[in-house]
C-alpha cells in the first residue's frame, strides 16, 4: 500500500477495525506526510466533536410537544383507521370470525337436512287438507284435466257455426 491508499484510511480512522488501525499506526510511524495528515484530520475531528457537543434543542420543548399532539389529535379518522386495521390484524378476531362462519355453515346444513327428512315424511303420510307438491301426482291430475277439456274440444271448433257447437254440446251431455 502506498501513501495514497492510506489517505482514505486516515480520514476514516474512527471507522476502522482494530487491525486496520494498527496498520495505519505502523505506516505513519515511518511516513512524515501521512503522520502530518493524520495529525490534521484528528485535529479536525476534535473540532467537529466540539460542535457536536453543542446541544441543539427547540426553543420551547413543551410548546413543540403540544403542537405535535394537536396535529395528532386532529387526525380523528386515524383512530378509526387504527381500530379497524388493528382488528383485522388481531389473531383472536380472525379465529372468532372463522368459528362463526363454520357455525353458520353447520347450522344451515343441519337445517336443510332436517327439512328434507320432514318433507319426505309428509309425502308418505299426507295430512288431511294439506297440499302435496309431488310431481307424479301433479302430472296425473294435469292429464285428467286435459281429458276433461278434450271432451268438449271437437264441439268448439272455430270453423263451425255457434248453432253447431250448441247442438254438439247438448248431444254430449245426453
Amino acid at each position: 500500500m502506498n501513501c495514497n491508499d492510506y489517505k482514505k484510511s486516515i480520514f476514516l480512522y474512527a471507522e476502522l477495525s482494530t487491525l486496520e488501525k494498527a496498520e495505519v499506526d505502523m505506516h505513519i510511524k515511518g511516513c512524515d506526510n501521512c503522520f502530518a495528515l493524520f495529525h490534521a484530520t484528528q485535529k479536525m475531528q476534535i473540532s467537529l466533536n466540539r460542535i457536536a457537543q453543542v446541544k441543539v434543542a427547540p426553543e420551547n420543548a413543551a410548546k413543540l410537544t403540544r403542537a405535535i399532539m394537536t396535529k395528532i389529535n386532529g387526525t380523528t379518522a386515524s383512530k378509526w383507521h387504527h381500530f379497524f386495521t388493528l382488528s383485522f390484524h388481531s389473531p383472536s378476531l380472525k379465529i372468532s370470525l372463522s368459528l362463526l362462519s363454520a357455525l353458520i355453515i353447520v347450522t344451515f346444513s343441519l337445517e336443510s337436512f332436517n327439512h328434507s327428512i320432514l318433507s319426505k315424511q309428509f309425502l308418505k303420510q299426507p295430512s288431511q287438507g294439506s297440499v302435496t307438491l309431488d310431481s307424479k301426482v301433479f302430472r296425473e291430475k294435469a292429464s285428467q284435466r286435459k281429458g276433461k277439456a278434450s271432451f268438449f274440444v271437437d264441439c268448439l271448433s272455430p270453423f263451425k257455426s255457434n248453432q253447431y257447437s250448441l247442438e254438439c254440446l247438448k248431444n254430449k251431455f245426453k
Binding site: 420543548a61 395528532i72 383512530k79 387504527h82
Partner: peptide, 26 residues
C-alpha cells in the same frame, strides 16, 4: 400507540423530539 393510545405516543414524542429537532436543525 398502535392501539390508538395518544397518551403513550406523547411519551414517545417527549423522549425523542430533541433528537429529531437536533437532526433537522443541523
Amino acid at each position: 400507540a398502535m392501539k390508538g393510545d395518544a397518551v403513550a405516543f406523547r411519551l414517545l414524542v417527549e423522549a425523542h423530539q430533541g433528537l429529531a429537532y437536533s437532526i433537522a436543525f443541523r
